[in-house]
């Protein structure tokens, strides 16, 4: 029975992943902001076959509360095989350009809260001598683009942080997985116009579960984003600044 902590458990991508694990009889600890919605997801996962589902409501912007939350989760599960971090938000880029406050909030929830909680998770996994830390970054972090660079720069911070953490935890047998989805059709992107390159939360979840099983380091979901982002990263800055992306 796998022991899995999910932070940001009300995210559509996290929920779809949790269903795969519930189906296999995992023990789950769910952390999300909205108490009614976390409780509803917990009830659903129990019916779908999870062995144990415990949950709590927590605003992840409250960094000081992270330690006690992790203590409760560790106690409930008896350690962690997998920690999935999936919370996040996507503000309108224009609005972030006009409001320092909004831009800071965007960085705080998408980047700083992730660093805060990972900093506390890392020694726990390393002391266990194994386990997986899987974190939702994004292809948006691979290169700042005018259409979403505030969000993107927060994700870039997460990706860089995880790359260093991976080196640090490698010798203790901990897998650090950076997950970089392309656009996914979830509540976060409800306001955006969808196109053919969009993925479903179910297919992204399947990729996450697979990436963990295969002990991968960095995954792009769907996989075609890897070559695309390789090209996007390769465009010289002098040219890049002239194109609309």
């Amino acid at each position: 029975m796998r022991k899995i902590l999910i932070i940001g458990a009300t995210s559509a991508i996290a929920e779809a992943s949790a269903r795969v694990w519930a189906n296999r009889g995992a023990a789950l600890y769910l952390v999300g902001r909205d108490p009614a919605r976390v409780a509803a997801i917990a009830a659903d996962l129990r019916i779908r076959g999870a062995a144990i589902v415990a949950h709590e409501a927590q605003d992840l912007n409250d960094f000081a509360a992270h330690e006690a939350m992790l203590d409760r989760a560790a106690l409930a599960l008896g350690g962690f095989d997998i920690v999935l971090i999936a919370h996040g938000r996507l503000e309108d880029q224009r609005a972030c350009e006009e409001s320092v406050d909004l831009a800071m909030q965007e960085i705080r929830i998408n980047a700083l809260s992730v660093v805060a909680v990972c900093t506390r998770i890392a020694p726990r996994l390393s002391a266990q001598g194994g386990g997986t830390l899987a974190v939702l970054s994004s292809i948006a972090g691979d290169r700042g683009r005018r259409s979403n660079y505030v969000y993107g720069s927060a994700k870039a911070l997460v990706s860089a942080y995880l790359s260093g953490l991976r080196q640090r935890l490698h010798s203790s047998g901990v897998q650090v997985l950076t997950i970089k989805p392309g656009p996914v059709d979830t509540p976060m992107t409800a306001a955006l116009r969808k196109g053919p390159l969009w993925a479903s939360p179910q297919s992204v979840a399947a990729g996450i579960v697979r990436g963990i099983e295969r002990r991968r380091d960095v995954i792009y979901l769907p996989g075609f984003w890897r070559p695309i982002m390789w090209i996007v990263r390769g465009i010289p800055e002098g040219l890049f600044k002239r194109i609309r992306l």
């Binding site: 559509a12 509803a40 997801i41 009830a43 659903d44 019916i47 779908r48």
Partner: peptide, 9 residues
């Protein structure tokens, strides 16, 4: 279709 949670069995 994405409103698809079980509530009680």
């Amino acid at each position: 279709r994405s409103m698809d949670r079980f509530i009680h069995f």
